[in-house]
Design a protein around this nucleic acid. Sequence first.
DNA 1: AATCCTTGG
Length: 709
Amino acid sequence: MDSKYDLMSGKCSNSKFSLKFKPTPIVFHNKNGPPSPKKIKLNNSKAEIPIPNSNSNSNFGNKCKLSIQEQKRKLPVFQNRNKLLDLIKRHQTLIILGETGCGKTTQIPQYIYSARLQNNGRIAVTQPRRVAAISIATRVSQEIGNGAGIGDTVGYLVRFEEVTSKNTKILYLTDGMLLREAIVDNLLMQYTVIILDEAHERTIHTDVLFGIVKNAQKVRDERKLTPLKVIIMSATMDVDHFSKYFECKVVYLEGRTYPVNIFYTKAPQDDYQTACVATFFKIHRQAPADEDVLIFLTGQEEIEAVVHQIRLLAKDPEVNGPPVRVYPLYASQPSSQQICVFQSVPENTRKVIVSTNVAETSITISGVKHVIDSGMVKVRSYHPTTGLDALKVQRISQEQAWQRTGRAGRVSEGNCYRIYTKFQFECLQKSTMPEIERCNLSTVVLQLLSLEIHAAHFDFMDKPPKESVASAFEQLNMLGAIEDVDSGKLTELGTQMALFPLDPRFSKILLSASNYGCLEEALTIVAILSGESIFLNPPAKRDQVQALRQKFYSAYGDHIMLLNAFREYTNVSQNNRRSWCHEHYINIRNITYAREVRAQLADICRKCQIPASSCGSNMDQVRKCLLTGLFTNVAELHRDRSYITLDKRQIVSIHPSSCIHGQKPPYILFTEVVQTSKCYLRSLTTINVEWLLEIVPDYVRIRNIKCVD
DNA sequence: AATCCTTGG
């Protein structure tokens, strides 16, 4: 062991992720060329030759001076334009498999539009992410270029932003938005063509839409209404699964990316973090400085540790190679830090990005030539029997491995170093488990019920676990949203709950707030809870932040603290808000978003005729109101100083991020519990246990909960 | 006593 690499004595205090020894070089097998997934060719036997200079979905660079029309003609999909149009004309449902860079997302809707296949209706194109819907719509609007801007022929629709008009014929929207539209009109009559894009990602929204569009198409047909064309676009390898479900033809489109050399390790690696660092320095010594490196790891803490290790080692005089700029990347970063990964570095400097799976799909960084794939990912999964969410580090799927690999071949030929053996790769699950199989389903079950569909009888492509459906029904029943567990008929309350873009427990809180005279306060808390954290926590300034935050502190816990912070924020004049947020370590993006969510929720409350009310400084009212939705989330202090949940008798702990961490109140209400190294309760409020008897007497009786000390 | 993958409405 070489002591100069012993970082234990250095500033890296977290022993879990410290580098304990000098990283030994990792030996790789070289597999020349990508053993790319099995391809199904379009009946056309002539394969297209990949054309350099691709433009990506999210990053429309104008590197060459080609006109828009010339660029369109150079896209691989253009060669198949007439054939595609013919197929779309002849088939009511079609699956289009398109590799990255083939141009399917931007071009196919335009082809349909110019051939007038949409008749008098609209073409909807769904995307899993907001930014994608907006940026693609903007691009397509430029391409159509009929003198009209975005929102005319081409528009987009995402939460809080609708850029459309009566003339809009091509509409890019998030899958979640189309799903909400389906609740109002389950036949989706304003559309004559619906394209579900990125179907391979299997978001819970896209999965539900599969069944909804299939049904809409069938019913419209039976009732002799305007027919609906359905196109599924995907990059999946598992096409059989899709074609069986939709019973339709599959078309394959070749992409336009550069080849990527794959390297596997010769032996399995136990310590994938150290192996990633060692592999980085191997590349660093050999490759030209202008070739950027992207490392995939699992979480914030791990990433910060590896960033630290690389910085330290790069300074070591014995490490050869150019200077290094290291950038961490994960979604919960403040956006100011995230932007840094797009900045170019000085000449003769190595750029390396250490990222979670955000860099797999959500964020595209151009110029990456080398990818290091740890083979691991952090996944959240729901256990219906316990109601617990677990956050576990596990192996990625083969699909994910290919997605990561592809990140090295976007601008030129690249390399991908897989920190696992070829055999290990072959043992990986082929596909990532769809979200619907590992989620709490109460929102989906409620949405389906408002369409008069019982989730147990819904035509899912992959059925969610029976236990998840059952526990969702049980929860909705306890909340009073359905008449009984079996019939699944919505009560009036349930019908109102379905109108909110929220977890049903949060909708319940809002709908019962008038009973406690605290709608204003409930709206604020629920809006903040349904988004990302409004508090910034830079580890370097922990003490400073802690001191500043005392200003918002409440002995009742985190919910009231969030309320205090938001009240302060709204008291600050518009012009000073930016600097106020900066001074108080508040994430301005997230608090601004919370304000928008709050306005939307307030609007729905008005429509439900919930009278406005405020409880001023009477926080008991708010705390009781929170219990109306979260009564199953109560934990009691035990003699041995640990906490146990009243509902399922789980042993749990207060998460260190809570403002009452370190205190031991006898009863606490929690927003969620996530199992990582322990079962941690997040976002807490202290309560009096007698309140349970007053608020949910039936629940107390059924669960046989003791409400007196 | 010691910390959190990622989307979406």
